[in-house]
Design a protein around this nucleic acid. Sequence first.
DNA 1: CAAAAATGTAAAGTATACATTACTTTTTGT
DNA 2: ACAAAAAGTAATGTATACTTTACATTTTTG
Lengths: 64, 64
Amino acid sequence: MKNKLKVLRAERDWTQAQLAEALDVSRQTINAIEKGKFDPSLPLAFKAARLFKLAIEDIFQDEV
Amino acid sequence: MKNKLKVLRAERDWTQAQLAEALDVSRQTINAIEKGKFDPSLPLAFKAARLFKLAIEDIFQDEV
DNA sequence: CAAAAATGTAAAGTATACATTACTTTTTGT
DNA sequence: ACAAAAAGTAATGTATACTTTACATTTTTG
């Protein structure tokens, strides 16, 4: 599962810590998801989609 | 998290077992998700979206 | 360049997604 | 009504999402 969190953060000039707080998860969770260590849960994916006002599919991509 | 799996199955006249096989999970997993016992993982949500040719948000809804 | 901020990473623990087995209840078809 | 199929449910086990603490490395800024 790939994702655009790093780019979306960069566009807004947000740190991992700021995004983590906005999504109510730990900074390590954001870091791990950005680095592809694991996939977010569906509820967390929904939270991110709401935050960025994007579709889940626009943020997270099933890599084939 | 609400979902339309039961309706989508009904439209296609599929059993829980058939949907489970198509998504490569157990029948109990489908049953539990339909009954709201737990949310699917993001990868499973993507699989369902591909199968039904719908957006994840069209199948699963964050209840407020 | 030095300090500070941001990012990366690791270990250990908790919560939840999912499997398997097995059984009960409900629905469907003849 | 009866049998068969489908759906519901429960217990136990495993995998993974996520937390917390802690520290190392990289990047940014004065």
